[in-house]
Nucleic acid binder design. Structure first.
Lengths: 112, 112
DNA sequence: AATATATGGTCTATATACGGATCAATTTTA
DNA sequence: TAAAATTGATCCGTATATAGACCATATATT
């Protein structure tokens, strides 16, 4: 990616990533799993797991969700079946949405 | 990273990433924001936003959460204050946890 | 106590995710 | 209808996230 990538994150986003990492760490300890073992099970390196638990936002979301799943941290406060159902419903919903919903793309300023 | 990185994801993880992407896309359309505008606001490229909405697991979690936040997709079913509180509580909890909780790291096989 | 294990940090090499540009197809607006 | 805008998709160059090895410290076990 040309030019150095210096991304900024909103407070909420940073907190969300941090919280997820903290929850993972907590869950891992409660289950008495070492970082090495969890990393192995998730198919990632121990270093990456450390960054995840630390709340580093520059990690693959797939890797983070995988680790969370293994230690039992539920995303969206939903279990597997619920999640799958939501996904199906959402997809159907999207499919049924009108071709267009755009109307007036009025400029918006956001500052978190 | 030596050797090609071919990661596998559990069904649940893939569904979670896909759902999040679908929710973002839905929320963006409801708010009548173009992909370009949302990408600009999030400080990412349009291409990355497309991958996010598609549910590609190989995206920075920070970028995904940032986009979700902008369009109003709440993570953890919690608003900002709640999230911050959870984070504080979790951190305190972790700080108060006994130095060690590991005991018997018995081997476990997981297949999602 | 000594020994073993776990954690956290650093360093290097490389696979790759990213930004940016381009184009075709679709959709919206006039 | 035509024109404008949006979307989806490629391709390329490069910054960087990752794996893996290493080491020092901390914690656990005996």
């Amino acid at each position: 990616m040309p030019k150095s990538v210096t991304r900024t994150y909103s407070r909420y986003s940073r907190d969300a990533v941090s919280l997820l990492g903290a929850l993972i760490r907590e869950a891992r300890k409660e289950r008495r799993i070492t970082t090495q073992e969890l990393a192995d099970r998730a198919g990632i390196s121990r270093g990456l797991l450390q960054r995840i638990e630390k709340g580093n936002p520059k990690c693959e979301i797939g890797a983070v969700f995988e680790v969370a799943t293994i230690v039992g941290v539920k995303l969206f406060d939903a279990d597997e079946s619920t999640l799958t159902n939501s996904l199906r419903q959402t997809r159907g919903k999207l499919a049924l949405l009108p071709k267009s919903v755009r109307k007036k793309p009025k400029a918006v300023h956001d500052d978190f």
